[in-house]
Amino acid sequence: MRVNLRVNGRPRQVDDVWEGESLLYVLRERMGLPGSKNACEQGECGSCSVRLDDVLVCSCLVAAGQAEGREVLTVEGLPGASAPSSALSSDPSGDSSEDDRSGELAPIQQAFIDAGAVQCGFCTPGLLVAADDLLRRDSDPSDADIREALSGNLCRCTGYEKILDAVRLAAARGETRRREGG
């Protein structure tokens, strides 16, 4: 079947989709957007998290046909879709990632790098989409709120401490930006 949808703001059309394919499969294998990860395909790990019509979902549990006409945001689209990032693209301490691509990162992406929240990185895209979703709703979440919001995203490497650090860091930088009228 044919499926039309918007992904990260761009209209996309894919053909020959098998009716049992998930949105995750279509993103990864038919659209060249492998950022959303296929870690469990049963909604237990959150690695495939995307926003579907602005709602955080596991893309492995969305049938491709259900995405017809919908708007999907993946980790690849985060820089353009989250809170404005340009003012915050690098750590003020100067200890930020030196990569010249860092200007294209969303604040939550930069915070994950700076806080050491990335190890193997397989859970990272899903966590970024989920954490960004949290910060859109609550710019200053408590630790318990962060834990609850990220409880659908498994990480096997970090023990989550540095992921918490990253979300706190992104929230604090957002606060700084707001105070400075950015």
Partner: peptide
Amino acid sequence: ESTLRPDGTLKTTGEFAYASDLW
């Protein structure tokens, strides 16, 4: 020093190519 991961950026943008991403 606590330098940052050189692969950190690619891992946060989704571009880092894991084995299951290859095509």
